[in-house]
Write a protein that binds this DNA or RNA. Structure first.
Length: 817
RNA sequence: GCCGAGAUGGCGAAAUUGGCAGACGCGCUGGGCUUAGGACCCAGUACCUGUAAAAGGGUAUGGGAGUUCAAAUCUCCCUCUCGGCACCA
């Protein structure tokens, strides 16, 4: 038997015909929802994508054989920037190119033998899907969870258009190289911050998520508890509130800093003769990259406002500055600066010669402001802090907070790093935000009966990159659904992350016309039992999906709080040390591999190349190994057919016992590898070992046909989640009818795995010196005795008595001398 | 910069979670088979030292310290690589 392409086709057609992968969602007994992150149809899929779907397919096939009623759907995250860019460059309409890409990808996925329920396919750029994305928007809007506010965008003054972060190349427009500026636009947000605490608390429900993803989400939400403190502006009835987590340093404040975006600045500097200079500084700071501004390494820059504020705890007057290192997005946009105990403040104070005062002393030696060359950020003893002197600073945090609350000069406050989700995009290729602006009624959401708001298809793509919706008068002008008066449509579209925040619900009832999903069924099928995708989605996509799920739960559309019960994040496949991308030109197309070797060779290699959660380097040569192994395994099937059964006695001989042991231990280990985590690489290596051993025992000619047959059958049933086409072929050659997926995953018998005789290591002072065959029933004393009596060990002992002997059961003896 | 992950032979990796480092595969070397093979079968393969060949030593899991009878695994410090950082998806 030889593996070739016709085998792939034969079994793919068979699965299709028998509808093996179509799932009856009405039957919810033993349900198992296996979900892979749906792809963005950029162009053809490369082997990096393939890894995701192959892992998902291996899991879903394994679970089917374990008797689960598996649902494995697929769809396409089809809105997005690249298709629109291509259209602007003069190519196809985004819809055409996207649907073409989808057609290619569909063919690819099928040619790899990935088993999906294709009747459930969802495509997020089609009205039957985005109608419901819009519906979700209106539900959030009704709930007050969607609102408008001003927010900064990247603006190219030459193209007169908004740029995505990706389109800004080191501060300049990717298209025309003009310096990009920040510009405030009124934009739509989802109030995810209202769910910050909730999203944080429920991380504890995510038992089967990787720790690292949970940590990243926790840090992203970034809860901190501190105190809001009100500083009076000198000579005015104005108050500036700052937020600090280090209220213990409040007596050491020597100046205050505002973010350049702070709304109070305008008023504060209106009488300042130098205000033009200040405005110039603000403009400059706002152009700087935000991650740079927040980083400790980038030069701190600031300007004095000419005003002073009063520290409420001691009445001290301190100067008020504006600086690039303060961000409006976090806290209150105003920071009390304590240069002696914060490194950024320290650097800034040194640069602008602002004064320093120590309020937390180092217990190991007094701090001297004239000699400090960095802030003292460790714990210490309170000094220069009035009645709090002498306390430990950790203790003082609580005491000072109490005291300030009593005196009504500060309030305990919780802050989150998480910001509201900006969902407006000034682009064409996305779901239109279903809002109209009525001259009388203001912002009005489109009622469900009028959804979807169709994205007009007959539009022109100008090279400026401005959304064509702005010029489409036919789209723009409409009537108010409330009063029937004149109204204009919102021209922004939604972030594609909104599309992907609920697609897993749509799969359950994808054809549903009257509602987004069949809630009763969704409640039975979700949470997803296993979600599989790239670790690069660890924060945004997963957080947004959790948020939308929680909102829908609170609105009583669904009755579960978390969408994904278990999560597996696979690593990237890299080539020449870099992530595969078209721009780097290092993608590996699977098509030639399928052509040359067949789908199973590619699948096997991708699963074998390394642990699936880690990045792996693609090497074409690896395919050879998989090819060779599969051919070698197939040759066993031929050998079996021609095998002459020797007339054996009833007792199994040692070759047979060993082979039976190997069969059962392989089943055990492969099953464990799949159950505990997705260790496909080691599972496959164990099957390789079994094949090697079958060759050995058959070459000896001492094995009866029945056991040989069991070995071959085991090899292919264990391989079937990984190399399904070959497995089906062998399965039918062995005389089984129907799909191998309908057979049960094999069980192992523990008593057939056990052995009496094992080899253990003997070491002296931790260094391996000898090996020893022991019987597992021997006592500890007997084993230690045997170890000591070996001549090799004796030569190390040189007649001396050992200090100590450590015996690790069934593993080793260590003799300490 | 912040958050997260990682570093083991020539290469991809394994190591029962503190107990024989390098399973399995690639590559390479030698042999067999073959008209031929980038096919197949068998054997060998961390490094240094040693030897005619062995035996035998010694050194090794990014670097440095530490804990332990015993460390790839635990602790501290350092270096480098990768992912995310809110308008790529």
């Amino acid at each position: 038997m030889e593996y070739n392409k016709s085998i792939d086709k034969k079994w793919q057609d068979f699965w299709d015909r028998e509808r093996i992968f179509s799932t009856d969602t009405k039957n919810t007994k033993d349900k198992y929802y296996c979900l892979v992150m749906f792809p963005y149809p950029s162009a053809a899929l490369h082997v990096g994508h393939a890894r995701n779907y192959i892992i998902g397919d291996a899991v879903s096939r394994y679970k089917r054989m374990k008797g689960f009623n598996v649902l494995s759907p697929i769809g396409f995250d089809a809105f997005g920037l690249p298709a629109e860019n291509a259209a602007i460059k003069g190519g196809f309409h985004p819809k055409t190119s996207t649907l073409n890409n989808i057609a290619t990808m569909r063919t690819q996925l099928k040619s790899w033998g990935i088993g999906y329920d294709w009747d459930r396919e969802v495509i997020s750029c089609l009205p039957e899907y985005y109608k419901w994305t819009q519906w979700i928007f209106t539900k959030l809007f009704e709930k007050g969870l969607a609102y408008k506010k001003k927010a900064a965008v990247n603006w190219c003054p030459s193209c007169m258009t908004v740029l995505a972060n990706e389109q800004v190349i080191s501060g300049s427009c990717e298209r025309c190289d003009t310096k990009v500026v920040e510009r405030d636009l009124s934009q739509w947000f989802f109030k995810i911050t209202e769910y910050a605490q909730n999203l944080l608390d429920d991380i504890s429900l995510l038992k089967a998520w990787p720790e690292r993803v949970k940590t990243m989400q926790t840090n992203w939400i970034g809860k901190s508890t501190g105190v809001n403190i009100e500083f009076k502006v000198e000579g005015e009835d104005k108050i500036l509130t700052c937020y600090t987590t280090r209220v213990d340093t409040i007596f050491g404040v020597t100046y205050m800093v505002l973010a350049p975006e702070h709304p109070a600045i305008h008023d504060l500097i209106k009488n300042n003769p130098d205000k033009q200079k200040i405005y110039a500084f603000i403009e400059k700071a706002r152009v700087q990259d935000k991650t740079d501004r927040a980083s400790e390494t980038v030069a701190k820059e600031g300007i004095f406002t000419g005003r002073y504020v009063i520290n409420p705890v001691n009445g001290k007057k301190v100067p008020l500055w504006i600086a690039n290192y303060v961000l409006m997005e976090y806290g209150t946009g105003a920071v009390m600066a304590v240069p002696t105990h914060d490194n950024r403040d320290f650097e800034f104070a040194k640069k602008y010669r602002l004064s320093l005062e120590v309020v937390i002393d180092n217990p190991k030696g007094h701090l001297d402001t004239t000699k400090m060359n960095a802030a003292y950020v460790e714990d210490g003893i309170m000094v220069n802090s009035g009645e709090f002197n002498g306390l430990g600073n950790q203790e003082a945090i609580e005491k000072i907070a109490d005291w300030m609350e009593k005196k009504k000069i500060g309030r305990r406050s919780v802050h989150f790093r998480l910001r509201d989700w900006l969902i407006s995009r000034q682009r064409y290729w996305g779901a239109p935000i279903p809002i109209i602006y009525c001259e009388k009624c203001g912002e009005v959401a489109i009622p469900e009966k009028d959804l979807p708001v169709y994205l007009p298809e007959n539009v022109a793509f100008k090279p400026t990159g401005q959304s064509p919706l702005v010029d489409s008068t036919e789209f723009l002008n409409t009537k108010c659904p409330k009063c029937g008066g004149k109204a204009k449509r919102e021209t922004d579209t939604m972030d594609t992350f909104v599309d992907s925040s609920w697609y897993f619900l749509r799969y359950i009832s994808p054809k549903e016309k009257a509602r987004a999903f069949d809630a009763a069924l969704v409640n039975k099928w979700l949470p997803v039992d296993q979600y599989i995708g790239g670790v690069e989605h660890a924060i945004l996509h997963l957080l947004y999906s959790r948020f939308i799920t929680k909102v829908l739960c609170d609105l009583k559309y669904i009755d579960f709080k978390e969408p994904f019960g278990a999560l597996f994040t696979q690593g990237m496949i890299v080539k020449n040390g870099a992530k595969m991308s078209k721009s780097k030109g290092n993608t590996v197309a699977p098509d030639y591999i399928i052509d040359e070797y067949g789908a199973d060779v590619m699948r096997l290699y991708i699963l074998f190349m390394g642990p699936p959660e880690k990045d792996a380097e693609w090497q074409d040569e690896g395919l050879q190994g998989s090819w060779r192994f599969l051919q070698r395994a197939l040759r066993l099937v031929e050998m079996l057919e021609n095998y002459k059964d020797s007339k054996e006695n009833k007792e199994l001989n040692n070759y047979e016992k060993d082979l039976v042991r190997k069969i059962h231990s392989t089943i055990k280990e492969v099953t464990q590898d799949l159950e505990s985590s997705f260790q496909f690489n080691t599972a496959i290596s164990r099957i390789m070992e079994l094949v090697n051993q079958v060759y050995k025992s058959i070459n000896e000619g001492m094995v009866r046909k029945e056991i040989f047959r069991e070995a071959v059958s085991t090899v292919f049933i264990l391989l079937s989640p990984f190399t399904p086409h070959i497995a089906e072929e062998v399965n039918s050659a062995l005389g089984f009818s129907g799909s191998i997926l309908k057979r049960k995953w094999p069980d192992f018998k523990e008593e057939l795995i056990k052995t009496e005789e094992i080899e253990i290591a003997v070491s002296v002072n931790g260094k391996l010196r000898d090996k020893l065959m022991i019987n597992v029933n021997w006592s500890k004393e007997k084993i230690e005795q045997k170890a000591l009596s070996s001549s090799k060990i004796q030569s190390f002992l040189q007649g001396k008595l050992p200090k100590k002997i450590i015996y690790v059961s069934g593993r080793m003896v260590n003799i300490v001398i």
